[in-house]
Amino acid sequence: MAPAVRFRAAVALLGRFPALAGVDLDVDPGEVVLVQGANGAGKTSLLRACAGLLPVAQGEAHVLGHDLRTGRGRRDVRRHIGLLGHAGFLYDDLTVEDNVRFAVKAAGLPDPHAATGRALERLGLHTRLRTVAVGRLSTGQRRRTALAVVLAKAPELWLLDEPHAGLDAESRDTVDAIVKDAAAAGAAVVLASHEIDRATALAHRTLVMAGGHVHEQDRVHVA
């Protein structure tokens, strides 16, 4: 089985600063990989590089069989990737439902109405919240909307940057369940989190990053 993510000595630059300084990484379909590290270690850069948003300048970078060193590869792979970043990529003037439906239609999925409805229901956004403009939501509700966008796209690779941040206990449990279901369905998940205990319980493997390098890799047994 081909890995969903395969990086070899991957270098990515932010200006002249190497955000990734020779990263080796394999993530298999169905695997949940936790990325840990101090602030500025390169976790977010790694996720953005996997999404093709941060160009890989040197080394090898393949995601879902697409070569991220080429513009064509980056463009083609994005449709199959769900990224939950620090920002939610949401439009404040559109409603929760409009935001999710736009993403689903853009991804070209069949039956966008049903996919949108399922995602909103899973995140508890199917109530009157679905008709509220995103600009009027609380931080936690925005975060759930951003996750609903990722969930509705049903990506083959999930890239989650601090997915538990700003959420209440119930929503955190929902996030955990969604991640487990995605992995069970065969999707690869790369997760960056400072919530060590919760994230470790989800992950099959943990990477520790420092200074743009993968510092160590440990296998974690999921209970």
Partner: peptide, 19 residues
């Protein structure tokens, strides 16, 4: 401006829409 708020431009790049 609507694409700058909340990094929506990155969302557009990830959307898979034809540029």
């Amino acid at each position: 401006a609507v694409e700058s708020a909340d990094s929506a431009r990155d969302g557009l790049r990830l959307s898979g829409l034809d540029p």
